[in-house]
């Protein structure tokens, strides 16, 4: 069983922002963090990840900078901005509000008396 792409699609940006909010990171490490946070249940497609980075950069949620690795290739790090943190907070509020309602909508049965 894997989590359906349709279900998670709208949350890709929030997932990335949540990870970057805990510290600057780069592509491969973010994809690893996603695997770990989901307990190996979800793997974000790399193409989706790099597209999301670009989208977030354009919208001002993150900025990027090059690392100063002394050996090997230089990594491109992403850093969450104040706007990104605000948007993350908003997304979290939205989610908190929506999750219980969606859960009720898709699992609850209508008891007699609920509908007049």
């Amino acid at each position: 069983m894997t989590i359906s792409k349709d279900l998670i699609r709208g949350h890709t940006d929030t997932i990335i922002l949540n990870i970057l909010n805990q510290g600057d990171s780069y592509g491969y490490q973010v994809s690893k963090s996603i695997r770990i946070l989901s307990q190996q249940q979800y793997e974000l497609n790399e193409a989706t990840l790099y597209t999301a980075f670009r989208r977030l950069e354009k919208s001002g949620d993150v900025v990027s900078y090059w690392g100063d690795e002394t050996q090997g290739a230089r990594r491109k790090y992403y850093k969450i901005t104040a706007t990104g943190q605000q948007n993350l907070a908003v997304a979290l509020q939205d989610w908190e509000f929506a999750k219980d309602i969606i859960n009720r909508l898709i699992t609850d049965t209508i008891a007699k008396g609920d509908v007049s």
Binding site: Y28, Y50, K76
Partner: peptide, 14 residues
């Protein structure tokens, strides 16, 4: 070009 540089580092770690 910039994206390629980003990928080089990520792929080396992978």
């Amino acid at each position: 070009t910039e994206f390629k540089e980003e990928l080089v580092a990520d792929l080396m770690e992978a």
